[in-house]
Computed example of a mutant assay.
Amino acid sequence: MRFPRRRRDPVEVNLTPLIDVVFLLLIFFMVSTTFETRQALELTLPESVSGVAAEPSPVTLVVTAEGVYRLAGRELAPESLGAALAAEAEQAREHGLVVEADAQARHADVVRALDQAGQQGIQRVRIATTESSSSDSFPRPAETP
């Protein structure tokens, strides 16, 4: 005797509710997450009038007015600055790096030095200044009668 076989409907998985749940979770995490923008180097430049003397650091980078760098008593070309900082990076990460830039040094040369320090993971960077001789650091315009 032959029994008739029941026809089974093909099994389908409805993905619409799953996609809805995933989108709701995505929206929830996007709304509840706080985004924090961080700079590579967080520097607070000291005022030369009220600057406080800091402890000396064993790693000091000098930027001359001509754009020449000096590190550990050696003169460096801009191309070799990264390699020289890499050699001193461990000590600079521990004790910090002091950048002594000449008053006539180009801004681009100082930024290049700070960028190379950031690439080496040096986060404690101080910019050396000298104490101002007068309490007025900026000249005031003359008053007109």
Score class of each variant (00 low, 15 high):
97 L>G: 07
79 E>S: 14
9 D>I: 05
135 S>I: 13
121 G>S: 08
70 R>C: 03
46 P>E: 01
115 D>Y: 14
105 A>C: 09
137 S>Y: 11
116 Q>R: 15
57 S>C: 02
124 R>Y: 03
84 A>Y: 09
119 Q>P: 06
72 A>D: 10
126 R>E: 14
129 T>E: 03
110 V>A: 12
30 M>I: 11
30 M>K: 04
24 L>Y: 10
10 P>W: 05
143 E>H: 02
76 L>D: 01
140 R>I: 03
96 G>Y: 08
61 L>P: 05
77 A>T: 12
113 A>Q: 07
24 L>F: 13
127 I>E: 13
73 G>K: 07
40 A>C: 06
4 P>E: 14
49 V>L: 02
50 S>M: 09
80 S>F: 03
66 E>G: 08
83 A>W: 06
77 A>D: 11
37 T>M: 09
114 L>I: 05
88 E>Q: 15
15 L>S: 06
76 L>T: 09
40 A>H: 12
98 V>H: 10
1 M>S: 12
43 L>K: 02
132 S>M: 05
145 P>V: 13
63 V>T: 05
38 R>K: 11
81 L>Y: 13
2 R>D: 06
112 R>F: 06
14 N>K: 04
79 E>C: 00
61 L>G: 08
145 P>S: 14
56 P>L: 12
52 V>E: 12
24 L>R: 03
121 G>E: 05
46 P>M: 01
35 F>N: 00
92 A>W: 04
90 E>I: 00
32 S>F: 13
3 F>C: 08
109 D>A: 15
128 A>W: 07
106 R>L: 10
40 A>V: 11
68 V>L: 06
138 F>Q: 09
103 A>W: 03
63 V>H: 10
42 E>W: 01
30 M>G: 12
19 I>T: 08
84 A>P: 06
41 L>G: 09
97 L>C: 04
66 E>R: 04
71 L>T: 00
